[in-house]
Design a protein around this nucleic acid. Sequence first.
DNA 1: CGCCGTATTGAGCGCTCTCAAGCTAGGTGG
DNA 2: CCACCTAGCTTGAGAGCGCTCAATACGGCG
Lengths: 229, 229
Amino acid sequence: MPINNISNAACSYCNCSPHCLIESNPFNRISQLLVKRTRHFARNETLCVLNDRFQNIYIIKQGAVKAYQVDINGHECIHAFYFSGEMFGYRAIHTGHYISTVVALTDTLVCEIPYDQFVDSLQYNLELSKHFLSLISRQLSTSSYVDIISAENRVAAFLIDMSLRIKRNNPMQELVLPMSRQDIGNYLRLTAETVSRILSRLQKNKLIIVEGKSIRILNPEKHQSLKIS
Amino acid sequence: MPINNISNAACSYCNCSPHCLIESNPFNRISQLLVKRTRHFARNETLCVLNDRFQNIYIIKQGAVKAYQVDINGHECIHAFYFSGEMFGYRAIHTGHYISTVVALTDTLVCEIPYDQFVDSLQYNLELSKHFLSLISRQLSTSSYVDIISAENRVAAFLIDMSLRIKRNNPMQELVLPMSRQDIGNYLRLTAETVSRILSRLQKNKLIIVEGKSIRILNPEKHQSLKIS
DNA sequence: CGCCGTATTGAGCGCTCTCAAGCTAGGTGG
DNA sequence: CCACCTAGCTTGAGAGCGCTCAATACGGCG
């Protein structure tokens, strides 16, 4: 696997193409014009650091990352996980500096797109402008888990979301979470102990089967009803 | 005060101009091209309704609004307040339908901008594209209050934020909150009772002076330290 | 095998919620 | 002018959920 492999292939040739967030005709039309770069990061490697100068938007070709800030108590506040096909970095557009540190949860391949060049290309393509605005707006329209009051509903909603976003190529429909219980807790504003207890409880109630990082969801419908507190 | 007064004045003549979020040279240059409309809403009147077709982006010239969804338990989840000079509606870009109901908290004047026309105008002005993306990105980069664990810190952070966003023309630096305690609670995911108790506690600790909806912040520095849990 | 990081489980505490009772301000009518 | 009403706000008592602290179990790896 080549590190920092420079490539300028059209999006249609990307291995992430079937489920890429920005995969769409308008983007493909423009994609040939953009110099993109595929980069590889090992588990625990840092993709970008809080306060570094904003330069690139990233799309994950393969793998998973977490984006977090460390608060004054040293607590790691995770505000997002991103998976295969998803885009990140755009939250830095306003400040010009990354507003979180992003770390790979597993071996991860990303597509790196220089923002300056990308935004300049918008003037040649109104459709791309519209599409990009729509993508960003999508992030604004998805409500956060912390809106959900009870811890159990929050974990259930998290599992449903993960099961929809993590691409799986196994027949058993099992979900393999790339993050630790602590990460899940930091994301949902719960402690790792609470996350663990709730997973046990959901298993006892025959809603899921837990085997370490691998989780099988037995009754997605039941979970749906849990989702909204 | 004319209702639904049609106007197409340049932004520079708007009474909101001194503190408008989208006030900037690039926008002013384009603003003459856009048909805008000034509309008036009385207290408790609805500006837009959840699931209605997305047509306009709004900028508040004067007043205040709350944006909320009602969850399946009938609980009103407020996800934002907007004040004079601020923009809303852009969260609907992705879905094409408004994702919340917006209601006036006081008598409110808004500037209504048709999105289709606005987005078409982007192709004539790259600077406007960049500026608009930056504005939207700003919304993504501001973290939510619910990230703050303790209720006291959440309320303190809320008060600091309000004091920065609500424009005042009084010398005593007093903050007049346009929303009820219940609204504050719905926004911070606390009960109205808890909000009330915490305001009393902050007053007892000589951090604020509460007189109904009017609040004076005595030690902004002390609050800052409260802000991050 | 022992080691270490992660996950699970338990006991007790504290914060916020629930439920309920008073309180206040503003409005209406006599 | 006061009596009365109502909605919103405040305050109190008790309960429950999630946190803290601590012990134990698991799993990968030398």
